[in-house]
Computed example of a mutant assay.
Amino acid sequence: MTTDRARPAPNPAGGTLSGADVVLLRTPDRAGPMAAELRARGARVRLLPLIDFQLPADTSPVSAGLQELGEGAFDWIILTSATTVRALHRFAADSGRTLAQLTSGTRVAAVGAATRQALAGKGIDADLVPEADQSARGLAAAWPAPGTGRNRLLLPQADIADPFLRTTLADAGWEVSAVTAYQTVDYPAPEELRLEPGAAVSGPGSSPAQAAHTQLSPEQYRSFAVACRSGDAPAPHAVVATSPSTARRFVRDTLVPDAAVLVAIGDPTARQLLELGHPPEATATEPTPAGIADAVEAALDAHRISHSPRPEGKTSK
């Protein structure tokens, strides 16, 4: 089920998600806007970070790619996530230049609103962002045909990135230079390798906003989920999977069957959950805080309807 509806009016209890428990599969530094939107609607928010990001084992390919970028060797650069923007910002700083300087004169594509916003924070305006389907498939569908020039593009991605975008654009006639900008690892990454040292760890050095988050370990989450399933805590709770990799790790390491209502941040994550045998109850139409909160509302509403008593005293499935 994909949500595409107006936000309902707040209920008298204080919000459309008043009293609901929502678990976000994100680190504190990346959960802020999403958590704030859910709390504004009355939800109790917990964080369950399962993945982290670190420097690639070999940094020479991305460094070489950025050097070529700064020399104007590419027609386009494609950014497929805000994390990619953060990684390239770090590599650019190490080279003594800014990412905005390196992309000057090169057209920039962003996979969606979050990536465009991350680019804007670095002083870069995206030339192409898919409107409806903000995913690799949406970007490929919106991609221009090759022209009469060199048709070269730089595609920095995670080490576990789906090859779809690279192969689709190459098949269309583009010369694609794909480089690994960062690695996705189990949380937490070693401090010396983390893209943003200290950012994902709550403590004396964390910001007040990060410190306010309730963060769970996988063991703590499982205890919480078992309590929800047994009726010892409010049930159900929603779990928001924020990427295919978080979905895989959640199902592999922390899922408690029949304890949570699953919500996907977008279609790629929904497809991954479906392939894992745990389809989401709802999928956000946009990977924005409001879109995700709408999906959580829809998922919990659908769960309540499907489990409400029938007139004859039975429950529907």
Rank of each mutant, 00 (worst) to 15 (best):
Ser104Phe: 11
Ser104Asp: 14
Ser104Cys: 05
Gly105Trp: 07
Gly105Ala: 08
Thr106Ala: 04
Thr106Trp: 06
Arg107Val: 01
Val108Ser: 01
Val108Ala: 02
Val108Lys: 09
Val108His: 02
Ala109Thr: 00
Ala110Arg: 05
Ala110Ser: 10
Val111His: 04
Val111Lys: 02
Val111Ile: 05
Gly112Ile: 14
Gly112Pro: 06
Ala113Asn: 08
Ala114Met: 09
Arg116His: 15
Arg116Tyr: 14
Arg116Met: 15
Ala118Thr: 08
Ala118His: 14
Ala118Arg: 13
Ala118Asp: 09
Leu119Pro: 10
Leu119His: 13
Leu119Lys: 10
Ala120Glu: 12
Ala120Val: 15
Ala120Lys: 15
Gly121Arg: 12
Lys122Phe: 13
Lys122Asn: 14
Gly123Arg: 15
Gly123Leu: 13
Gly123Pro: 13
Ile124Trp: 15
Ile124Asp: 13
Asp125His: 11
Asp125Met: 12
Ala126Phe: 14
Ala126Asn: 13
Val129Tyr: 12
Val129Glu: 15
Val129Arg: 15
Pro130Gly: 11
Pro130Gln: 08
Glu131Trp: 10
Glu131Tyr: 03
Ala132Trp: 12
Ala132Thr: 15
Asp133Lys: 06
Asp133Tyr: 07
Gln134Thr: 04
Gln134Val: 05
Ser135Ile: 11
Ala136Cys: 03
Ala136Met: 07
Arg137His: 06
Gly138Pro: 11
Leu139Gly: 00
Leu139Met: 05
Ala140Glu: 09
Ala140Arg: 08
Ala140Pro: 04
Ala140Ile: 06
Ala142Trp: 08
Ala142Pro: 08
Trp143Thr: 04
Trp143Tyr: 04
Pro144Arg: 10
Pro144Gln: 13
Pro144His: 06
Ala145His: 08
Ala145Ile: 13
Ala145Asp: 12
Gly147Glu: 15
Arg150Asn: 10
Arg150Phe: 13
Arg150Tyr: 11
Arg150Ser: 12
Asn151His: 11
Arg152Ala: 12
Leu153Arg: 07
Leu154Phe: 14
Leu154His: 05
Pro156Glu: 14
Pro156Trp: 07
Ile160Cys: 13
Ala161Val: 04
Ala161Leu: 11
Ala161Ile: 07
Pro163Ile: 05
Pro163Thr: 00
Phe164Tyr: 08
Arg166Ile: 02
Arg166Asn: 01
Arg166Asp: 02
Thr167Val: 15
Thr168Gly: 01
Leu169Thr: 01
Leu169Gln: 02
Leu169Ala: 01
Ala170Gln: 06
Ala170Leu: 06
Ala172Ser: 09
Gly173Gln: 10
Gly173Thr: 02
Trp174Asn: 01
Trp174Val: 00
Trp174Arg: 00
Trp174Ala: 01
Trp174Ile: 00
Val176His: 06
Val176Tyr: 01
Ser177Asp: 12
Ser177Asn: 06
Ala178Met: 03
Val179Lys: 00
Thr180Trp: 00
Thr180Cys: 03
Ala181Asn: 00
Tyr182Asn: 03
Tyr182Val: 04
Gln183Thr: 01
Thr184Arg: 05
Thr184Cys: 09
Val185Glu: 10
Val185His: 04
Asp186His: 07
Tyr187Asn: 12
Pro188Cys: 05
Pro188Arg: 03
Ala189Met: 13
Ala189Thr: 02
Pro190Met: 10
Leu193Pro: 01
Leu193Glu: 14
Leu193Asn: 10
Arg194Lys: 13
Arg194Tyr: 02
Leu195Gly: 03
Leu195Gln: 03
Glu196Asn: 08
Glu196Asp: 10
Glu196Lys: 00
Pro197Ala: 04
Gly198Val: 04
Ala199Ser: 11
Ala199Trp: 04
Ala200Ser: 10
Val201Ile: 15
Val201Cys: 11
Val201Lys: 14
Val201Arg: 13
